[in-house]
Write a protein that binds this DNA or RNA. Structure first.
Length: 154
DNA sequence: GCCAACGTTGGC
DNA sequence: GCCAACGTTGGC
């Protein structure tokens, strides 16, 4: 059964507009083991993810992306001249994973973090919790549906 | 730009 | 295996 997710990106680095323009992109540079494990073990092609802008004013859920290729080794990790270089990684021991995501939908209205926090239907959603820094998070189906409804203007 | 929260590293 | 130091994330 497909699962639901939330993925964070700083809009200055790669926004939903960039994704819409490009159609799809490789979701690279994940250097956190828990997020890596989700990509490696749980995220499947076709899964949908809320696209979330972090470090923006305000931070907000802005649309939906679709996993277009499930996890595969992040080859940037063993390229010494790359920003995401990790000396412990190698082709035999990739350590880190990336995936491809495709543009799926842009919300009619962004839903700010304050709105997400204020909505009783979203109580317990990880992104609303203090100190939650995971850039790839699982989302409960009911929470996912609620955020999408809000984003579409319902 | 500040700084609290968190994950990782490395000395012991 | 503990924990202080460090680097990063991300809301504010």
């Amino acid at each position: 059964m497909p699962r639901h997710w939330l993925i964070k990106s700083e809009p200055d680095v790669y926004s939903i507009d960039d994704l819409q323009r490009d159609g799809s992109t490789c979701w690279e540079g994940i250097r956190n083991y828990q997020a890596r494990n989700y990509i490696r073990d749980d995220m499947a092609e076709g899964d949908l993810a809320i696209y979330y802008h972090s470090r923006s004013k305000p931070p907000a859920a802005v649309g939906i992306a679709r996993v277009s290729r499930a996890g595969y080794p992040d080859h940037h990790a063993w390229q010494a001249d790359h920003d995401y270089f990790d000396p412990k990684a190698s082709p035999d021991n990739p350590i880190w994973m990336m995936m491809d995501v495709a543009f799926f939908e842009r919300f009619a209205q962004p839903i700010s973090l304050a709105q997400l926090k204020a909505d009783p239907a979203l109580e317990g959603m990880l992104v609303t919790q203090k100190g939650q820094r995971l850039s790839v998070q699982p989302v409960e189906p009911v929470h996912f549906d609620r955020v999408v409804a809000l984003g579409r203007g319902g």
